[in-house]
Amino acid sequence: MSRYLLNKFLYTVDRDPELVERYRSEPRELVAWWEAERANAVLNCHTGEASTWLRFDEAEREALATHDHVKLFELGAHPFLTLTLFIAMFERDNTEPLEYQKYYGARLAHFALPYPDIAT
Score class of each variant (00 low, 15 high):
residue 65 A to Y: 01
residue 7 N to F: 12
residue 102 K to H: 07
residue 115 Y to I: 01
residue 78 H to G: 05
residue 81 L to C: 07
residue 1 M to A: 14
residue 29 E to S: 05
residue 34 W to N: 05
residue 56 F to D: 12
residue 63 A to F: 08
residue 102 K to R: 12
residue 42 V to Y: 10
residue 8 K to R: 15
residue 13 V to N: 14
residue 62 E to F: 09
residue 63 A to V: 13
residue 72 L to C: 10
residue 6 L to K: 09
residue 88 A to K: 13
residue 97 P to S: 06
residue 39 A to I: 01
residue 54 L to S: 08
residue 61 R to C: 06
residue 32 A to H: 07
residue 89 M to D: 02
residue 73 F to Y: 09
residue 12 T to C: 15
residue 73 F to H: 07
residue 82 T to W: 06
residue 100 Y to F: 10
residue 66 T to I: 06
residue 29 E to D: 06
residue 50 A to L: 15
residue 116 P to I: 05
residue 106 A to Q: 04
residue 16 D to N: 11
residue 12 T to I: 12
residue 80 F to K: 09
residue 120 T to L: 15
residue 74 E to S: 05
residue 31 V to N: 11
residue 96 E to G: 03
residue 91 E to I: 02
residue 38 R to N: 12
residue 44 N to G: 10
residue 36 A to D: 06
residue 114 P to Q: 01
residue 80 F to H: 07
residue 88 A to E: 10
residue 30 L to P: 07
residue 85 L to T: 13
residue 69 H to G: 07
residue 40 N to V: 03
residue 4 Y to D: 14
residue 2 S to L: 14
residue 72 L to G: 08
residue 81 L to T: 10
residue 8 K to L: 14
residue 116 P to E: 02
residue 38 R to E: 14
residue 105 G to L: 01
residue 73 F to P: 05
residue 75 L to W: 08
residue 29 E to N: 02
residue 27 P to G: 03
residue 42 V to G: 05
residue 118 I to G: 07
residue 23 Y to V: 09
residue 80 F to A: 08
residue 71 K to I: 13
residue 64 L to P: 03
residue 72 L to Y: 09
residue 107 R to I: 04
residue 73 F to M: 11
residue 56 F to H: 15
residue 99 E to F: 01
residue 12 T to L: 12
residue 74 E to T: 09
residue 40 N to A: 08
residue 84 T to H: 15
residue 35 E to F: 04
residue 114 P to A: 01
residue 92 R to A: 04
residue 117 D to Y: 04
residue 105 G to M: 02
residue 64 L to V: 09
